[in-house]
Simulated scan of single mutants.
Amino acid sequence: MFVFSFKKGWNPDGKHCYVTGGSSGLGLALAKILVAKGAHVSIVARDQAKLDAALVEMEAARVSPSQKLQAKSADLLSATASTAALEAVCELHDGAAPDAVFTCAGSSKPMFFVEMTEQDMKDGMDYGYWVQAWTVWAVTKMLVKQKKRGAKICMVSSMLGLMSFAGYASYAPAKHALRGLADTLQSEFMLYDIESQIFFPPTIYSPGYVTENKTKPDVIKKIEGTDEGLTPEQAAQGMLKGFVRGDNHISADLLTDIFRAGTRGSAPRVNFVFEAIYDFISYVGVPIWRRSVDGAIRGHREEHDKYLHLRGFFG
């Protein structure tokens, strides 16, 4: 006899949802879905022109005249700025902390490790980790001070937060760090009845993907050819589905499911039946995938050496 535990699904209707990185890509797609489900939605990003355009799209998804929709420009790379941005959007809600927070802000600049500058490495942590961590830090303090129970915070990592390969030395460490933060808070938040979750998307065909391809080495593009990827809308739907269900680790495609199951650590299981299957597939399939990736990298040695010579790396 099996005993199953069912969680009541989270409903965004009437809730205040705070979305960082909400002017494009995953953040905007998620914001529009939340608006269409009756939520009050506040988005924050740096580019005011993009925010204005995003707000028009959000207004088109409105289902009630009582919904409060806003877009604020802010740079979230410091504790001070992240706190100020949070307080600014909460003014419309009489200072009350958000019911749900989605930290979608971030960017990637893939390139070979030997080509990275000191600034590239610092930017990797700033735009991959701190741009989300400072918001989580600010929101947590506000929620605890207000004794607001039942709130939910969801960070956005990447499939590369579960594994990694060449080209992502400034990006993957930050995404692994977000997972460490989310797993830590999943435990610590039990003190306050707050929920910590994290999303591991595969490739998302967003404006950010177009930008990162400008620096991405060709061999990495070849390796990533096996990742079918998702549109921002597909990724947002998958993220929200896991968020509503209460998954601590959220994935939206089969390949990420397999990596997630194989690197779960002490995180709570999403579904013990399916994860047993994914564990087996991971045990058999990941080493095969790894060998193919390693083979592609080794086969690129000569071409890579010529590339570094042409770039003047050797002096």
Rank of each mutant, 00 (worst) to 15 (best):
T263H: 08
L34V: 11
V156K: 11
R260H: 04
E224S: 07
E233P: 02
A49W: 00
R290D: 05
G25L: 03
P98E: 08
M163S: 10
G167F: 02
E233Q: 15
A79N: 02
I288Y: 08
P173F: 08
P98A: 12
F313Q: 07
V210A: 11
E228G: 00
V89M: 13
V19F: 03
E228D: 04
A267G: 10
D294I: 01
L178Q: 04
A177G: 02
G95M: 09
A96S: 14
F313S: 03
A235W: 15
V244K: 06
Q234T: 06
V270W: 01
E228S: 04
T83W: 01
D279T: 05
V270R: 12
A296F: 00
Y129D: 10
Q186T: 09
V101R: 02
V210D: 12
K109I: 14
T80Q: 13
A49G: 01
H176W: 08
F313L: 12
G128N: 05
D47L: 03
S292K: 12
A267P: 08
T211G: 07
P12G: 14
I194Q: 09
I43N: 06
G38P: 09
A79S: 09
K50W: 02
G299D: 04
V284G: 03
A29P: 03
Y168H: 09
L240I: 13
A138D: 07
E59A: 15
L191P: 00
P201A: 10
S78I: 00
C154Q: 10
G9D: 11
L254T: 10
L254I: 10
S206A: 11
S206E: 05
Q234F: 03
T80D: 13
P12M: 11
Q197T: 06
G22A: 11
G246M: 02
R311D: 01
L51Q: 08
A79K: 01
K141Q: 14
V284H: 06
L92R: 01
D193P: 01
S73W: 12
P202A: 13
G25M: 11
E115R: 05
D94G: 05
R264V: 08
D126R: 12
R291A: 09
A79P: 00
V3F: 13
F313T: 06
V114F: 09
V89D: 07
V286H: 05
N248H: 15
W10F: 15
T117G: 14
Y129I: 05
L255P: 00
S78A: 01
I250D: 13
S292M: 06
T20C: 02
T215N: 05
R298G: 03
L181F: 00
V210E: 14
S108A: 07
K32Y: 02
V144M: 00
A49M: 10
G285Q: 04
S292R: 15
V89F: 12
D253Y: 07
K68V: 08
R311M: 04
E224C: 08
K306M: 09
P110S: 08
S23H: 05
R149G: 07
G38N: 10
S158E: 05
L55N: 06
F314H: 14
K175H: 06
T20S: 07
E91M: 08
K306P: 00
P217A: 10
D257W: 04
H309R: 15
A85F: 13
F243A: 01
S282M: 03
S196T: 03
V131W: 03
A169E: 12
G315N: 13
K241V: 14
G150H: 03
M111N: 15
E87Y: 02
